[in-house]
Design a protein around this nucleic acid. Structure first.
Lengths: 198, 198
DNA sequence: CCCTATTGACCGACCATCAGTCAATGAAAA
DNA sequence: TTTTCATTGACTGATGGTCGGTCAATAGGG
């Protein structure tokens, strides 16, 4: 027989080798040839591992997201107050260390709105549900510890959508200059209403 | 001298004649040639009035948005309660009658995230600020009429972002099957906390 | 009241680019 | 030596965008 390569791993390898390229230029300004050259493979090889250009962004996002989630779990376990946890949870959208991820995420939203694809929908649905469950857990904990009122359940559920919306506004308008402040102020305002007065 | 056409008007005319095409197919599945044929002009003429394909979507959005805002103002003047006003305000994202507009809006977000352009940023910034001012007005009125607590100002400000986020989720995941319910439930939950108890 | 010069709108053949294909090649194992 | 799979880059078809040429309307001079 001939060589058998780990298709899954090589897909990741190619994607990883192009992160810088994609964060610097944006998918529309890149050609498959450029990507292939950067990855050090022939153009045809790219199509052996990816459906198209968009699919590469998708893979990069998958890899970065996984890393991000592990980091997040660690960071979350280091604080105890519910408010702090939520602020850390949503720092994804402004965190200094996630600039690259956000760039890819932005690109990804653009793609999934413009050229929908079954795999992407599944991925996003899973992400969405995971994050919701995560936030839900944080709130439930806060309620049990008597930090916040039970009504929080309903309200905080929308926080993820709110953050995403603000993120998009911050990216596509000049109306938001400090997203971090905007988001944290909102959480503070929410807690003024939801915190159990002692 | 030669014929002088109203460039602004003709730009609108061409855009309008293609609304159906763009709502049915999505920009990536359309070619300039198709658009030109549909509009009944030559391909070169398209480039006389638009920078590129994306610019056509932009013009369509402009026209539809203007119509929409006028309707909205009318509808808003017909209800008096703050909660009702907010629900009507945000029905843009699920309203039966705005299906076309949403299709174009979705496409537009995709474009403005993927291929930013100065005119679009200006437009979105203006929209964003207009809507914020509008919401702000509704809340202030509610506070003055003693329907809701003053804290509402800070909280409701994020509602627009929240709606946009939910809209994007509803479009790109299978996790939200009834956006209208989701949004209205959120507003109800918010009002449970913000309504002045009598 | 013609006739012609001028101007701006309009157009589609043409060009360059690029996504995606495929036949040929290489290389490892059997 | 044969089999099998990975790799490749030349090739193709499609399409976005350009540009030189054509047409139609008007102004104004004779």
């Amino acid at each position: 027989m001939a060589i058998i390569v780990d298709k899954v791993q090589k897909r990741k390898d190619i994607a990883l080798s192009c992160i810088e390229l994609f964060t610097q230029s944006g998918i529309n300004d890149l050609t498959i040839s450029q990507v292939a050259k950067t990855a050090g493979v022939g153009k045809g090889t790219i199509y052996e591992y990816f459906q198209n250009k968009e699919d590469i962004v998708f893979e990069i996002l998958n890899v970065l997201m996984l890393q991000h989630n592990e980091n997040k779990a660690k960071k979350l376990s280091q604080v105890s107050s519910t408010k702090e946890k939520l602020k850390i949870f949503f720092d994804f959208f402004h965190n200094e260390s996630d600039v690259e991820l956000r760039q890819i995420y932005k690109e990804f939203i653009s793609i999934s709105l413009g050229s929908p694809n079954a795999n992407m929908v599944v991925f996003q649905t899973k992400c969405f549900q995971t994050y919701h469950a995560w936030v839900e857990e944080i709130i439930q904990e806060g309620i049990q510890k008597n930090e916040i009122l039970p009504q929080a359940t309903k309200l905080v559920k929308g926080l993820f959508a709110l953050n995403e919306g603000m993120f998009i506004h911050s990216v596509s308008t000049t109306a938001i200059d400090d997203l971090e402040k905007e988001i944290n102020d909102y959480i503070d305002a929410l807690f003024e209403l939801l915190e159990v007065k002692k």
